[in-house]
Amino acid sequence: MSVYEDQSAVTVIGLGPMGRALAGAFLDAGLRTTVWNRTAGRDTELVARGALRAASAREAVAASPLTVVCVVNYDAADAVLRQDEVAAELKGRTVVQLSADTAARARDLGEWADRHGIRYLDGAIMTAAPSIGTDSAVFLYSGPLGLYEEVRGVLDALGGTHTHLGEDIGRAAAYDLALLDIFWTSMSGYAHALALAQAEGVTPRELARFAQGIAAILPPLFEEFAADVEDGTYSGEINPVTSAVSTMSHIVHASEAHGIDASVMRATEGLARRVIGLGHGQDGFMRVTELLGRRG
């Protein structure tokens, strides 16, 4: 039996929308939950539901064997965790970091935690706050497998799926950034598409119906293109770069004719033309991955 099952205690540091959702899910699961936030007043509803209010970060981490941190970035996390008195209280305890930042920052914090005798897991939340506590929540973790298995019983209170990605402490952050890269690049493309459509007299709702069809063809392409990149095949049988770049050019010209900024598509077109210039015009667009990965 895990020590956490005996104590049923967890601390949540950071009470933005996501932090409040995490604390709420722990409370709903019947766990004794301590909360703390640098800005006062965000814990009122949680305290009314039974959460324990800590007067300081030191008091918060001392209240539980497990502390879950969910703040805006690692600068904010460091400002709390690396205080001498907080670090001293954390010795021998566990921190699960669910703030977002780079893999390098995760590894740095993991090394700091190890030097201070703090057990540390890094993690990422891949769904929005309303999903927390439901079956649709998605969590990724990296760090010592044994530690992950030990605290998993508490983390399960957050609902959804939990995946351990490996012992390298930076892997969860690496996945997080890569997946968010897909999301925000896609959102940028969709925003641009809506602006272009409106300029041509097509309403956003009219376009959305067909945009969903575009989104539906992407999952199998993700698998196919991942194999292209991993195997170095870059097949252009379906759509070679020379054909794709023509479409990109049309988008740029139509956008700029309406006074719409086309800098993102111009950058994409530029990458495609560089691939062609290197003699890979008959390859698929994923050949761009090799170009982007070049150093020097």
Rank of each mutant, 00 (worst) to 15 (best):
R82A: 12
M286S: 15
G232F: 05
W112C: 11
D228I: 02
A227H: 13
A226L: 09
S56Q: 01
D75I: 05
E237R: 15
N239Y: 08
T185H: 07
I118A: 14
L27M: 08
G166K: 08
L121F: 04
V12I: 12
F285G: 00
G259E: 08
D228N: 14
Q212Y: 14
T39P: 02
A191D: 06
V80W: 02
G279L: 03
H258S: 14
D168M: 10
D283P: 02
D6Q: 13
T39G: 05
A113M: 01
Q198W: 03
L165Q: 06
D114K: 15
E89K: 10
A104C: 01
H258F: 10
V71K: 04
A29I: 08
S186K: 00
A62Q: 07
N37T: 02
L140C: 10
A100F: 03
R171S: 12
C70G: 00
Q282K: 06
A257W: 00
A174F: 12
I125A: 01
T34M: 09
I238N: 05
T163E: 14
Y148S: 08
T161S: 14
V12H: 03
E290W: 06
I260H: 02
L177R: 03
D181I: 00
G123H: 07
L31N: 08
A29V: 07
R82V: 08
H164Y: 13
T11L: 02
S56G: 02
P220S: 04
T33P: 11
R93H: 12
L207V: 09
R58N: 09
M126N: 12
G296R: 04
G201A: 11
